[in-house]
Design a protein around this nucleic acid. Structure first.
Lengths: 230, 230
DNA sequence: CTGGTTATTTGCGGTGCAGCAAAGTCAGAG
DNA sequence: CTCTGACTTTGCTGCACCGCAAATAACCAG
C-alpha cells in the first residue's frame, strides 16, 4: 500500500496551472499501476482503454514494423504523460511501451481525459503543448535521419538522453537507466554492431565510458565537435 | 481584384463545424496573398507575423540544415493551414515554404489565431487534430527512414503524393504539381541520381511514367509489391 | 561456485548507395 | 529559331555501414 504525494504531482507539467481542488478531482479517477522492468505498459495496435502518467521509472516507446524491425520513438521519464491515444482521436495505441526499470504509473480511463479536457482548459492546453513539442521533435529526427551519418545520430541520441535523464557521476554524466547497444541502435536506425564500434572508439578518445547497459558521457561538447566534422 | 468564395472556404477542414456568420468574422481579418512559383511564402528562422490558409496551388515545406542540406517536410495543398507557428507557441517559422506553382493564400496576423481559438472552440479543436495528424505522420516517417531501404521510401513518397494530389490521366495517376528528381530525393533522404535510376528502372517495368518534373504512377499496387520484397 | 543466459566486442566480406563526372534533353527567353 | 540554363540520365568509383560469425565478458539463478 502507498499514498500519492499530491504536492509532487501538482508540480508536474501536465497539471501545471491547475488548482489543488481540481487536481484532487482528477487524481480521484486514477488507479496506480506497477510495471516490472521489461514488462509492457500497453501494446501496439491493441485497444486503448486508458492513458497514463509515469510517476517513477523509465519507459521506452517502441514501434515495430510489419517485418519485425523495431524503432524506439522516445523514452518517457517520471512526470510525463504516455499512451494518450484517446486525446489524438485514436482507439488503439500506435506503439508499445516497455518499462526499462521497475516503474510506477497512474492510469486513467479514456473517458476521464475528455471530462478533464472540457472541465479544465489548462489541462487541454498542456496536452496541446505536449503534442506540439513531440511533433517538432519528430520533425527534427526526420531531418537528422535524412541527412546525418550514423556517428552523428548516435552522438545526438546520447546527448539527448543525458539531458533528459542524466545523473552526475565521478567521470561525467550517466544515462539514468539501463540501455543496451541494441536500444541505442533502435533509436538511431543502425545496428548494435555499429553502436558498439562507435562507443569503443569514443571510449579510446575519452568522450564516453560504458559498461553493460550503462553509458556515461565524459565530454559531450568534444563528442559533438568530433562527429561534426565533414 | 477578386472576391472570396465563402461557401467554398466554409467546407474546408480547418473551419468545419463553424457557422457561416462566425466564418465571415474570421475571413474579415485575412488578407489575400499571391505567390509566384518558386517564391517563398515564409522563410525558416524568420519572425512569424502570420499564419496562412492555402486557397489554390501547392507549397512545399522545406527544412535546411546548418550545412545546407534540404529536407522536404511535406507538401501543402489547397484547403490546408500552413505556417501556424504561433499556434505552437513559436515566434519564428521552423521551415521555409516555397510555392511549387503559382499559388493563392489567405494570411492572418497571429493575433487573429488566438482570438479565433478562444472565440470558436471548433477552430481550436480542428487545429489540434491537424497537429496530431502531422505528429503521427512524422512518426511514421521516422520509422520508415530508420528501417526501410531507399527504393521503398521513394515508392511510398510517390504513393503518398498521388493520394494527396493525384489526377487521373490516360496512363495512370499523375502527381498534381511539377516535382523534380531533386525534390523527391529531398523528401526521402537520398540523392537525385538515385531517384533518377529508380524511376527509369520502374519505367522499364511499367510501374511509372515520367517526364521532366512530371511523374505518373501507372500501377501503385505492383510498385509497392515490387519494393516490398526483401 | 557454477552453468546458462544475455550482452558486448571485433574481424571480415559484401553491398546499397553516395559522389563525381559528363553527356544528353528539354523549356523558356529573347 | 536559337541560345542558355535547368533538369535528367548514366557510368564508374569509393566508402559507410550492414550482416554474419565467433570469441569474450558480465550477470543471474540455483
Amino acid at each position: 500500500m502507498y499514498t500519492l504525494d499530491r504536492s509532487l504531482i501538482a508540480g508536474l507539467p501536465p497539471f501545471s496551472g491547475l488548482s489543488r481542488p481540481d487536481l484532487d478531482v482528477i487524481l480521484e479517477k486514477a488507479r496506480p499501476l506497477r510495471v516490472a522492468a521489461g514488462q509492457a505498459v500497453f501494446e501496439q495496435d491493441t485497444e486503448a482503454p486508458s492513458f497514463f502518467l509515469l510517476l517513477d521509472g523509465h519507459v521506452r516507446v517502441v514501434k515495430t514494423t510489419a517485418d519485425g524491425q523495431q524503432v524506439i520513438m522516445r523514452y518517457i521519464s517520471a512526470g510525463q504523460l504516455i499512451g494518450i491515444a484517446t486525446a489524438l482521436g485514436r482507439t488503439t495505441y500506435p506503439a508499445t511501451a516497455i518499462a526499462a526499470v521497475d516503474s510506477l504509473a497512474l492510469a486513467w480511463p479514456n473517458e476521464a481525459w475528455h471530462e478533464l479536457a472540457t472541465l479544465y482548459p489548462a489541462f487541454a492546453a498542456n496536452t496541446f503543448k505536449t503534442v506540439s513539442a513531440r511533433m517538432e521533435e519528430a520533425h527534427e529526427r526526420v531531418v537528422e535521419l535524412a541527412t546525418a551519418l550514423v556517428d552523428r545520430r548516435v552522438a545526438h541520441a546520447l546527448l539527448r538522453l543525458i539531458e533528459q535523464t542524466g545523473r552526475r557521476t565521478e567521470y561525467g554524466i550517466e544515462i539514468g537507466f539501463p540501455i543496451s547497444r541494441q536500444d541505442i541502435a533502435d533509436m538511431t536506425g543502425t545496428t548494435l554492431h555499429t553502436v558498439s564500434r562507435l562507443l569503443t572508439a569514443w571510449e579510446h578518445q575519452g568522450f564516453v565510458r560504458s559498461t553493460r547497459k550503462r553509458v556515461t558521457v565524459v565530454d559531450g561538447a568534444r563528442l559533438l565537435d568530433h562527429v561534426g566534422r565533414v
